[in-house]
Every structure is written in structure tokens, then in C-alpha cells.
Design a binder for these strands. Structure first.
Length: 778
DNA sequence: CAACACGCTTTTTTT
DNA sequence: AAGCGTGTTG
């Protein structure tokens, strides 16, 4: 068996598979058979007598985990290897050991939306009104801190947020937010990692037990691990440093989520006797596709050169096409697919379409639908994120964890039952005053004087519904979900909405019931805890209606680790790829390039990149400009299709067929022109060197990251000389104001600031502590 | 005091 | 599409 396993592998691959003990770093270029190596390695370990329960394989996405599970199952059926995402692994550990950090077994996992609501509750409680930043920005900042393993005490604003109110506010609310989560018996995504990392650091006994239990650990996509993930892996590999990681620095695309590429670059330093295996031969793509990818990525400066080669055929040129707009782009692609499938040269499952942002999928979707081509979309509008699904799930979460105030506030008036904003405010106030959960406060609604009789009656009815449902909590999941839908009258509520908005939310409710039934069939021993965990940590219901032969649509991020014979990458445009937000940041810019690199290297046989002349954004057409990355691609490998210059800007008389004539300019002037045009546009918009006050103030409405004032105590002290009466400052809550009065010195400096446009009001602050920054000094 | 309709805005990427 | 503020109706 083992021999057969090894036979099919190349020398380099076999070396990786056979290295079982000790640290192992597998540097795997795209298409180098990494998944093959990892799965064969697991099978090989099992064959050499290592128990499945001692092996842990961690991935980033559920897709990657499923893929691995399936392939290991084929090679070594019935093994008990724990394969899953970091987050699901940590969630399972936290079910067992959560009490050590204040979480009961039935804790709820808050998704991004829940986290935001939780933060809003905290802000409301603290009476913090954000005028110059957003809850999203604060949640993001907390998320960043958590993935860097900074607890509320250790947190200091990071570089980019230090000069905005975000840093100040985060410092103020991080701890409170965290306390709120614990009170709700809840953990956000980052907590799953943070709590486990903290536990492993502080609890030696637990660390040793788990280190011993998971003696062999494999981590996929190691270049995308953040500090928390790094610490977890490290903590589990001290007594048994049999850690193997795979990765490719050129495919690091998650730094925005806190991934630190140094984890992979310094792996050899962390683990002294590391064996390094390089997988360089590509088995996936044609020579041409690989050369295009290589030429592109060579433009990254912060990069080790890597040799990529393939023995695959030369293949066709990479197509580069300009379309007039997103619709013709979508239509043409769908027609290409239809035509190739019609000729019997390909089937639907060979095709996939990648894009930078989720919105770009919409025209492609509608084109596919109108041609009745089967397709699947990887997390576009995520099923479990839809309002109707989240509502039902919130009921389930509340039943499972009565401390979950976020869920309660979501469902207390959904369907509407006469409990409005004011009533909820009274309930929140009551809960806060007597330190109760929202549910407890609801039970006492008769005692709350401020609550109207009518509202109190509604609240009582709501509590009764919950109590009835609570008796069914151990029923089979499908039944339970149905009970929730029935008892709350949710279907009637949703039908009403469907009629008005011409939607089909009802279908989604039914799909959720099926999903619950399906889950129960697959995992008969699991209950509500596990179901809700799965719901929180997965985003699509892929395997429910699995028609295997369909076109796949996904973002470039989601595409990592996958491969398709025929790939389309749409919207390769300035502002999209590279994305607008990476414009001023070299490192982010290079990450955008890696993103395109990842996309290109997914293709086996054929690849088409496209951009448009104008693209619909937020309801209006804007001229689009070809991505500068396209200029970096080797012209001799490309097959360029573009319309005559005149028609590019004249959408009216434009037929899709016109795009495919062969009237291609010899030089790259057309592309260069678009790039120049962009530069001109930038120059026009560029801020004057010395902006006037009004303009400065206007730009403050959305504070830019580049504002040059400080906010640590040291920096605040250093700024004092700049202060004087009449100076304009920005307060995180109150906005801009003018310094009216100053007293005290240094740390004791107290200033009084007048805010407000029509209605003026003044506040006094100790300068070093105040969430204030200098807007304009003179 | 609640419900609903309307317009405005918002969004990079994911667990 | 969904959240938010605003205005109207009940």
C-alpha cells in the first residue's frame, strides 16, 4: 500500500511525504501538487502506524478542508484525522475548555454582523456617539488587535489608526466590548483563536496535553497565518515538533486580515532542524499561462525569486479583451462558454469566473441565468447571511444561549409584534440597571414602569413563545427549526414581504429547514450547539444541491487552492485590481499583484483577462481604466482583442461581436493611453500643497490615515507647543471645535473647546487623555 | 408609540 | 440589499 502511494509521486514530492518526524517546510509553487503531497503524507503516516487522532491538519477555508477530507478518505478510508479550519478547530477546543476564559459550553459564535451589533450596544451604553468614525472601523481595529494577540490592556493603536479617532475610541471600548461578549456567552471569530492562544500560553497543563494529543500537525497556506494562529501552532509543537507547513509567499493575500508573511519566512529560524522541500514543477498550467504569471509576479520587489517550470504543452495565448461595459463582458463570456460546450469541447464544470469584488458577479449571474446555464457561486450573497435565515438562526441561538442579547434584540420584534425602538430602549435600560440579561429583563417587563401596557403585553407574549420553544430544544433539528418558524409566525411575515418586494424569502426559510434536516442526517449525534457552530463557520450550502456540472463564480480570494481548465478573470481595472484602497500603500499594492497571480495560476488550459471601458458603480456609469498590471504581462504571450477606439466610448451602437475583430494595434499605446489618462485624473484630484481651512475641515469628515498628528501620551505632550486659543481640533465624538481657553501645564493642561455649528456647546478636556487631534495649527 | 415608506448610502477581500 | 434618518399615518 505504502509503495503504491509513493510510486505516483515525483522525487521532491516523495521526499516531502516521507519526512514524517521533525519540522518540515514545503515551499510549493502554484500547481505543484501540494494537495496531493499533503493528502499522501497523511495516508503515509497512517500506514506507518501513527494513530489518526494524533494528527491535526489545519486549513483556512472550509473548501480546502473538505477537499482534503475527501482525498484522504479515498487514500485511507475511516481515519480519525482532525481536518478543518483553524476557526472550527478552536471552536471545538473552546467548547471543552471555554470555562477557563469565562465561556460556557453553549457559547455563541458572533459573526461580523453580530459583532457590530454588540459593539453598537456597548457604544450606546457608554453614550458614545460616533460622528467622525464608524462602528465598522472600530470593530476592524479590535479584530486587528485580537489577531495580533493584543488584549485590551496591551492594545495600542496601530500606525494607520493612531492619527484617527479610531485608535482613541478603540482604547476606550475594547475592554468593554470584550466584557460584553463574555456576558453574552459569546465569542467573535477572532476570539476563537485568541482565547485558545491565551489558554495555551497560560495553562501549561492543557498545553502539554494538547501538544501530546496532536503530535503531528500540518498547516496549509502557512503564508496566510496571523500571529494568533502562529502562536497556537507553536504552542502545540513544543514537545512534539512534528510540524509541517506548506505555503508560497507569492500567494500571500490575506495580510489585511492580520496575516504576517514573516511566519513562513522565519519558519526555519523558529524550528532549527527544519527540512525544506521545494516543489517547483507545475503540473497544472500550460507553459504560456505560467510565463504570464511569472512575468507578472516578477514585478514585486519584496520577493525571493522563484523558479517555476512545467513540462505541460505550450498552450494557447492568454486572451486579453476589452468590453464596453460589465454587461457585454458577462454576455460575451457566457456566449463563449455556451459555444464551447455546444461544440462538445468542454463542459460547464471546466469554467470558472473570478473577480476582485463580490458585486462584479451580478451581471455574470444574470447572463448565466438568462442562458439557463447551471452555475454555483462561492459565497456571493451568503446563504446564512440572508436576513430571513439570520432571523431564524437568531431564535435558535437565543434558545441555545439565553444570554445572547444580540440575538434577542434581533428577534424581539421580528416578525413585528408591537415592540418598537422605545420599548427596546426601556428593556435595555432595565437590564443594565439591574445587571440582567435581556431575556431576564423581558421576563420582568411587568415591573418596568416606563414600558407601556401594550408593549409589556407583547413582550410577555414573546417570552412565552420562547418558553414553549425551549421545551423542544432537544428535538431533532429539522423539527426544531420548523417549530421556530411555526410558533413565531415567521412564514406569514415573510410571505407578506415577498408579495411586496417580489422576492422569494420563503424559499430560503424552507431551505434552512432542509439544511437542518440534512445536518441531522449526516451527524445524528450532534445537537443544536454543533449545528449553530457549523452555521456560523460555514457560509454556503454547497453540498445541498450538488449538480456537479456547473460554472463556478468566485472572488479571487476564494479561488486560492483551486484549479479549473478554463478561467475568466473579469474587471482587471485600475481601482478594482489593484483595488482603490491599496493605492497609497506599496505593500498592499504588491498584494493586489499577488492576487492576480493567484487568479492566473488557477488556469490549466485557457485564460482570459478582461476589462471594460465603463463600469456601473453605485448606479452610474464611470469610465473604467485598464489595470496597470496588464502592462506588465508579456505581449508575445497575449492575444489582444479590443474595439476600435471610437466605439469604446460609445456604448449605444455597440454589438458584442464587434469586440472580436482582429484589428489589434501593434504597440501598447492603447493600454499606455489608459494608464496615462488615469495619472492625469489623479493629478487633477490631487490636493494642493497648502490646503485652506475649509478644505481641510471638509476632508476631516472622513479622516484620512495620513493625518500628521499624534495620539500616544508622549506624542500628545510633544504637540502641546502647537496648541493655543483659536486652534481647530477634532474630537472623536463631537467633531471639530475651537480651543477657547487653556489652563495648566504639560500633563495637567486642560483646554476648553467649543463645538457645534448652529448650537454651540463647550467641553473641557485634559489634553493628554482627550480623544482630540489637531486639525489645523497656526 | 409603532409601523411603514422613501431616499440616501454603503462595500475589498473571509473565518 | 440592508441600515439609517426622516416624515407620515394609525
Amino acid at each position: 500500500m505504502t509503495d503504491r502511494l509513493l510510486q505516483s509521486l515525483t522525487d521532491a514530492q516523495r521526499e516531502a511525504v516521507e519526512t514524517v518526524d521533525g519540522p518540515l517546510l514545503i515551499l510549493a509553487g502554484p500547481g505543484s501538487g501540494k494537495t496531493r503531497v499533503v493528502t499522501h503524507r497523511v495516508a503515509h503516516m497512517l500506514n506507518s502506524g501513527i494513530a489518526g487522532r494524533n494528527i491535526l491538519a489545519l486549513t483556512f477555508t472550509n473548501k480546502a478542508a473538505d477537499e482534503m477530507k475527501n482525498r484522504v478518505e479515498q487514500l485511507a478510508p475511516g481515519s480519525h484525522v482532525w481536518m478543518g479550519t483553524f476557526h472550527s478547530f478552536c471552536a471545538r477546543l473552546l467548547r471543552m475548555h471555554g470555562h477557563l476564559v469565562g465561556l460556557a459550553e453553549n457559547f455563541t459564535i458572533f459573526d461580523t454582523q453580530d459583532s457590530k451589533r454588540a459593539l453598537k450596544s456597548v457604544l450606546a451604553q457608554e453614550e458614545i456617539y460616533l460622528t467622525h468614525t464608524s462602528p465598522e472601523a472600530i470593530v476592524d481595529e479590535i479584530s486587528w488587535a485580537k489577531s495580533a494577540l493584543l488584549n485590551p490592556e496591551e492594545y495600542e493603536p496601530r500606525r494607520s489608526s493612531r492619527f484617527t479617532p479610531v485608535g482613541e475610541i478603540t482604547k476606550r471600548v475594547y475592554k468593554l466590548y470584550q466584557d460584553y461578549l463574555i456576558k453574552n456567552n459569546a465569542a467573535d471569530f477572532d476570539d476563537l483563536l485568541l482565547h485558545i492562544a491565551t489558554l495555551l500560553r497560560d495553562n501549561h497543563e492543557l498545553r502539554e496535553t494538547l501538544d501530546e494529543r496532536y503530535r503531528y500537525i500540518m498547516v496549509d497556506e502557512y503564508q496566510d497565518t496571523n500571529v494568533a494562529q502562529y502562536m497556537i501552532v507553536r504552542a502545540l509543537s513544543i514537545n512534539n515538533p512534528n510540524l509541517s507547513v506548506t505555503g508560497d509567499p507569492d500567494q500571500s493575500i490575506y495580510s489585511w486580515r492580520g496575516a504576517t508573511i514573516s511566519n513562513i519566512l522565519e519558519f526555519e529560524k523558529d524550528y532549527p532542524n527544519t527540512k525544506v522541500v521545494k516543489l517547483e514543477q507545475n503540473y497544472r498550467s500550460t507553459k504560456r499561462i505560467l510565463r504570464v504569471a511569472d512575468a507578472l509576479i516578477a514585478n514585486n520587489t519584496k520577493r525571493k525569486h522563484k523558479y517555476l517550470f512545467t513540462e505541460n504543452p505550450e498552450g494557447d495565448q492568454v486572451r486579453l479583451v476589452q468590453f464596453s461595459d460589465g454587461r457585454s463582458e458577462a454576455d460575451a463570456i457566457v456566449e463563449q462558454i455556451q459555444s464551447l460546450v455546444g461544440q462538445g469541447k468542454a463542459s460547464y464544470k471546466d469554467f470558472s469566473v473570478f473577480y476582485r469584488t463580490n458585486v462584479l458577479s451580478r451581471p455574470v449571474e444574470s447572463a448565466l441565468r438568462s442562458h439557463q446555464i447551471p452555475y454555483q457561486i462561492v459565497r456571493g450573497l451568503e446563504f446564512f447571511q440572508r436576513k430571513e435565515v439570520k432571523d431564524i438562526v437568531a431564535y435558535l441561538q437565543l434558545l441555545n444561549n439565553p444570554n445572547n442579547n444580540v440575538a434577542l434584540e434581533r428577534v424581539i420584534n421580528t416578525p413585528t409584534r408591537g415592540i418598537g425602538k422605545k420599548s427596546i430602549e426601556h428593556l435595555v435600560g432595565h437590564a443594565h440597571r439591574y445587571d440582567l440579561t435581556m431575556l431576564e429583563a423581558c421576563r420582568e417587563c411587568g415591573l418596568i414602569e416606563s414600558l407601556s401596557k401594550r408593549a409589556a403585553a407583547s413582550v410577555s407574549k414573546f417570552v412565552t413563545i420562547l418558553d414553549i420553544l425551549a421545551t423542544q430544544i432537544h428535538e431533532p433539528l429539522g423539527h426544531l427549526v420548523k417549530e421556530v418558524v411555526d410558533n413565531t409566525g415567521y412564514l406569514e411575515y415573510v410571505q407578506l414581504q415577498d408579495e411586496k418586494a417580489d422576492e422569494d424569502r420563503e424559499a430560503n426559510v424552507h431551505e434552512l429547514i432542509s439544511a437542518a434536516e440534512e445536518f441531522q442526517r449526516e451527524f445524528p449525534d450532534d445537537g443544536l450547539d454543533e449545528f449553530l457552530e457549523t452555521v456560523s463557520l460555514t457560509s454556503d450550502t454547497d453540498d445541498i444541491d450538488a449538480d456537479p456540472d456547473r460554472v463556478t463564480l468566485m472572488t479571487l480570494h476564494a479561488a486560492k487552492g483551486l484549479e479549473y481548465p478554463r478561467v475568466f478573470i473579469i474587471g482587471v481595472e485600475q481601482g478594482l485590481l489593484p483595488h482603490e484602497r491599496s493605492r497609497d500603500d506599496d505593500r498592499a499594492y504588491e498584494e493586489e499583484r499577488r492576487l492576480l497571480f493567484v487568479g492566473i495560476t488557477r488556469a490549466e488550459e485557457s485564460l482570459q483577462l478582461s476589462y471594460t471601458a465603463r463600469r456601473m458603480t453605485r448606479g452610474t456609469f464611470r469610465p473604467a481604466i485598464a489595470s496597470p498590471f496588464l502592462l506588465e504581462l508579456p505581449r508575445e504571450e497575449m492575444d489582444v482583442h479590443m474595439p476600435t477606439p471610437a466605439s469604446a466610448w460609445d456604448a449605444s451602437g455597440f454589438e458584442p461581436n464587434e469586440f472580436f475583430h482582429d484589428d489589434v494595434p501593434d504597440d501598447e499605446a492603447w493600454l499606455q493611453d489608459s494608464v496615462d489618462a488615469e495619472f492625469e485624473e489623479v493629478d487633477v484630484k490631487a490636493k494642493p500643497a497648502v490646503p485652506d481651512v475649509a478644505e481641510q475641515l471638509a476632508s476631516m469628515v472622513r479622516p484620512a490615515a495620513s493625518m500628521a498628528t499624534g495620539s500616544t501620551k508622549q506624542e500628545k505632550l510633544a504637540q502641546i507647543p502647537q496648541l493655543s486659543e483659536g486652534i481647530v481640533v477634532l474630537h472623536a465624538e463631537y467633531g471639530t471645535g475651537v480651543i477657547k481657553q487653556m489652563s495648566g501645564k504639560d500633563e495637567k493642561l486642560t483646554i476648553s473647546v467649543e463645538f457645534g455649528v448652529d448650537e454651540k456647546f463647550s467641553k473641557r478636556f485634559r489634553w493628554v487623555f482627550a480623544p482630540l487631534m489637531i486639525v489645523r495649527s497656526e
